[in-house]
Design a protein around this nucleic acid. Structure first.
Lengths: 241, 241
DNA sequence: TAGTTGACACGAACAGCGTTCGCTAGTAGA
DNA sequence: TCTACTAGCGAACGCTGTTCGTGTCAACTA
């Protein structure tokens, strides 16, 4: 599991109608797995559980899905496929990009801690993830940024979005529901942990416990995006080679 | 495994000498586990394997380590503990920070794909990781940045370092050794995958396949750091509340 | 329409994992 | 020397991903 290898994508870029005899298909498996992740979290997802939900045995799934890694990749692709891709406008590229990235994050967060799977899968090879990268590149190019800057940036930005989604989802329980109370309890626990540390060793962490755990709406996410784009513009004149 | 909960740190911030009768100790277990990760990768690390290396059974480890998650946390702390912490100098804070972060990345990369464990563990609670955060905060504050900006930034920056380390380590095999040939083969595979995509759907990815997979020395990492710090300076005047 | 074929379904099993149970054995204190 | 305690450890439990061999039904051929 999760060993580095040359990227490929298993599932046909075109359309390939599969025969189905007893209504068990790749799409159905992916959809079922997704509802499990949504309702019970990524840790609850295993082949037997998916099969049980479909009223069959785990072995049956392997006729449509090579292994669990492929299933996870298909799940991520399914989620990335839900994005609306904006038409790049050079006058509004930055707002468009921010909006697009927020959409990406919300999409991920709405599916429990699926972002954890995205975090491991370092390089996107699925059609949906490639679409997202292509769109992001188009937006950056519309901003007039040099090629190599865009190439490096799309990596950093994508990473930030996934990581933020992961952090966000870890605040809620596995049960999907927002549950503001539980999120507040968790963040409060972190804050009091920071505040309770020995101040002679961690003066700044103790003193900044409040600032470090501040969590009001999208402020944290917005800050990161603004930071990234400001940095990007500052790097625009950079040359390579 | 890996469910969100209030952070604690199992292992006593002070010194707590443990009795050892047959030379089996927490430190020895951690050290043994680390060499396994170094030589065979994170996937090869399991309790039986560690025990075998120590000439005993897996059950014996649980007298010194609560579970595998704690072992991983101890491993990460051990690695973060190897850092040299600079004395913040307001005139050189940015160079100091860059150097410090490079050191962090190199430290992680030198221990195989251990960065993957750091990626999952979203919030640092171990003494070593807290030391790193404290040092980073001190450097940012030395740069005269406002408190909330530092608080948000330390998160983004730490994340970038870990993610970059993970990406870096995934290019080498699990065998630790640099193996320039294998890294080149991997990156070449990614490049030709990008180049082989349908150009009508992914014109930018296909056209930028070279730029997207460019990998000369530390250029990529340096770019990200410069981007982050430029963005940070641009955000310095931001106010909150 | 009857027969054949082949892809799909699936129970059972295998190997590996983290972890626990309860017995063994050796050391420290009385 | 005897006793109490604790670390060590083999065996087992329950879970995981995955494979094998067999069963079974739908669709094509004659």
């Amino acid at each position: 599991m999760t060993t580095a290898s040359t990227p490929t994508w298993p599932g046909s870029f075109g359309a390939e109608p599969r025969r189905k005899r007893r209504a068990l298909s790749r799409e159905l498996i992916v959809e079922t797995a997704l509802t499990i992740v949504d309702t019970e979290g990524l840790d609850a997802l295993n082949m037997r559980r998916v099969a049980q939900e479909l009223g069959t045995g785990a072995a049956s799934l392997y006729a449509h899905v090579a292994n669990k890694d492929e299933l996870l990749a298909l799940l991520l692709d399914r989620v990335y496929g839900d994005l609306d891709h904006p038409e790049p406008d050079p006058d509004r590229w930055r707002e468009q990009a921010k909006e697009y990235l927020k959409q990406q994050r919300d999409n991920l967060v709405s599916h429990g801690d699926l972002a954890r799977a995205a975090m491991i899968q370092n390089i996107p090879t699925s059609p949906g993830a490639l679409d997202a990268a292509e769109t992001m590149l188009a937006l950056l190019r519309a901003g007039g940024l040099p090629e190599q800057v865009c190439a490096y940036a799309v990596d950093v930005i994508g990473l930030y979005v996934v990581a933020t989604a992961l952090e966000e989802s870890s605040r809620k329980g596995p049960g999907g529901e927002p549950d503001e109370r539980q999120a507040e309890a968790y963040i409060g626990g972190v804050r009091s942990f920071f505040a309770s540390l020995p101040p002679e060793r961690y003066p700044l962490i103790v003193g900044m416990a409040g600032a470090l755990t501040r969590n009001v709406g999208d402020e944290r996410f917005d800050f990161g995006l603004d930071l990234l784009f400001d940095g990007l513009v500052a790097q625009a004149g950079r040359t390579f080679d």
